[in-house]
Design a binder for these strands. Sequence first.
DNA 1: CGGTATCCGAATGGATACTG
DNA 2: CAGTATCCATTCGGATACCG
Lengths: 148, 148
Amino acid sequence: MLPPAPAAQGGTILSPSHSDVPAPDSADLAPADIHSGCKIVTPLLARIGDKWSMLVVMVLSAGPRRFNELKRLIDGISQRMLTHTLRSLERDGLVSRTVFPTIPPRVDYELTALGHSLRVPVKALGAWVFENRDEIARSRLAFDDRED
Amino acid sequence: MLPPAPAAQGGTILSPSHSDVPAPDSADLAPADIHSGCKIVTPLLARIGDKWSMLVVMVLSAGPRRFNELKRLIDGISQRMLTHTLRSLERDGLVSRTVFPTIPPRVDYELTALGHSLRVPVKALGAWVFENRDEIARSRLAFDDRED
DNA sequence: CGGTATCCGAATGGATACTG
DNA sequence: CAGTATCCATTCGGATACCG
C-alpha cells in the first residue's frame, strides 16, 4: 500500500528537449501531461504490440531478408499480413525496402538504424516480461478461479 | 547500413533462468527461439499497447484512485472500456481492486508492486519514442508523399 | 517472386440504458 | 457510486484468387 503522492509539480512526461537527462522520476504529473505523453507513446506501443511486428523486427535483426524468406521464417503469417506489417514498419522508418528490378523480381527488407535502436528498449521490456512471467501467470490463475 | 551478422550461436531470446545476466546481445537466433521469445512478450505488448491501459497505469502511478475519479482524470474513456481495462490489468496482477462495502459503494484501484515495476521499461520505451518522434514523423511524411 | 484485390468472421471499442 | 447488458460501427486478420 503506497501513500498517495502529495502534489503534482509540472513538467511533461518526458520533458527535456535534449536527451540524457534522467527525468526526476515523474511519479506525479498533471493529467494533461500524462495524456500528452501517452498520446505519443501508445500508438507505437500498439504498432509493435500487434500480432506480427515484433516477430518481423526480431527476424530482421540478424540481417536483410527477402519477402518469401521472411514468410518462411515467420511461422503462420499470411502473405497479406506480412505485406501490411512490412509497409507499416517501412512507413515509420524502422525497415527499408530495396527492389532489385531483375527477373524474377527480388525485394530485400532490412532494419534501419532506427529499427535496430528500437530493439534496445523493446528487449528491456522483454526482460521484464520474462522475469515476471510466473507472477503474471499465477495472478491470472488466481483471478480466473475467483470468478467461477 | 549494418553488416549482416556472421552466424547464429544458439540460446533462447532471454535464456537465463536466473536474472541479472545481460544476455550476450542476441542479434542472431534460431527462428524457433525468436518465436518462443516473442510468443511471451507480444501478448503483454498488445495489452499495454491497447487504447487505454498505459493511460490508466500512468494515472495510477501517483496513487490509488476510485472508479469515477479515474473516469474523470482519463479524458474520453467510456465506462465500459475503463471497466474492461481495469479488469485486464487486475487479472495480470498489475492493479489491485479494493471494495469498501459502504453506501454508496467505494472501490479503490491501485498499482501493485508489479505494476509499478512495469513503469521502468515502459518509460524507457517512452524515452525512445520521444527521442525519435521527429525522425518517425519525417519518415511517415516522406512515405505518404511517395504513394500519391 | 512479390505482391494486390476481395470476401468474411472475429475482435475492438463507443453509446446508451439499466441496476444494486 | 460503480458497475452490467445490449447494440452497433469500425478495424483486424485469415483464406483465397488473381497479377506483373
